[in-house]
Amino acid sequence: MPVIRMEFPFDFDLKELVKAYPDAAWYPKESVWAVPYADTRVSSLLAHFRGNNVWLDYSLVKKAELPQVWPELPPLADRIGAEIQRFRDWLRNRRYAEATVKNYCDSISVFFRFLENKDPEEVTNEDMELFNRDYILARGLSESYQSLFINGVKLYFAILEDRKLEPEIIRRPRRAKKLPHVLSKEEVKAILEALTYPKHRLILLLLYSCGLRRGELINLRVTDIQLERGVLMVRKGKGNKDRLVRFPPMLRGILQSYIKASQPREYLIEGQKGGAYSEKSLAEVFKKALHLSGINKPATPHWLRHSYATHLHEGGTDIRFIQELLGHQSSRTTEIYTHVSTRKIREIRSPIEDMDLEI
């Protein structure tokens, strides 16, 4: 069966966007996401991924439309792999987030493979510039991947090689100022009401009503629920910070019924065999709710958190309280929700409203 392959640099939200596309499937043997080919599939994919860095491979569809085929990078030499393992151990000993450890080590691995396993002591600023030009820019990889590469390589050479590569050789890209994706209250309501299975419905309710990140919900323990105080304790959120989040009293009944029926041992939301629920399963729950609600948007579970913050602001909640509830270190991060909130926009009259027009 002909398929269309979808390739992209690792990005969690982008991966969730791919998973949200109908019929998208992961092929572990080829390590690639793909969808069955159909006559209308290409235009549909382009619309779905507009503005995102996804490479669509049509090689099994039309031979005349073959994109740039990049040569395979050589495998990583054992000696370089051992050095990267030392770096991985150093990061973990300093309690870097596991996602950061993986992203830094993966980017450094690609860097050395691109350099054909060049000895780290011989790597220069020119090698960084070459990788940036002939790998990152040539393949159209994202600004976030470029920044990740710069951060990872700088730290690797500072720690393991005890020398500093000049960061100015590659100008750090300006982070794209993208507005968060927000669902309307009506859309959120439809998603929250789409599923009837108690565990799945509770997952969606908590993501939105408490503004939780996916990892925060998955790591939520039964003992973190403090119903008598009306709060949830989010432990070791982003930046390894704890915070309190208000728990809506209207959800007390469904929470108690769920706990009584499911009897989770440690984590509030547990997998079928116990232990923490997986992010993949959580994404599938959201994908099913999105489909049943009839909302035709490339939404991800994180959109519920964005919507929670925006709806709070539209309801008049002070931005400083929203910052605390979301666990943002800087108010500048939270202020982005003022740009998608319609609270003030609705108060602005368009000049056309003052004209005596016949429409």
Rank of each mutant, 00 (worst) to 15 (best):
Y145M: 05
I150V: 03
Y135D: 10
L148N: 11
R172Y: 10
A158M: 09
V153L: 01
S144M: 01
E168D: 14
I170W: 04
Y135K: 10
N151V: 04
P167G: 05
E161G: 08
I169H: 11
L160W: 00
F157W: 02
E143M: 00
R163K: 09
I150C: 08
K154H: 15
R175Q: 12
G152P: 03
Q146L: 11
R139H: 12
L137G: 00
Y135E: 07
R175H: 11
E161P: 02
I159P: 02
Y156M: 01
D162T: 09
K164D: 08
F149R: 02
D162G: 10
S142Q: 15
Y135P: 05
G152D: 03
I170E: 02
E161H: 09
S147H: 06
F149S: 06
K164R: 12
Q146Y: 06
F157G: 00
R175A: 06
L155I: 02
E168G: 10
G152V: 04
A138I: 11
G152Q: 00
I159A: 04
R175K: 12
R163W: 04
I150F: 06
D162V: 10
L141D: 15
D162Q: 13
A176K: 14
I136H: 01
R139G: 10
R172I: 10
S144K: 12
Y135I: 04
R139D: 03
S144P: 06
I150S: 03
S144L: 03
L137Q: 07
A176W: 12
N151R: 09
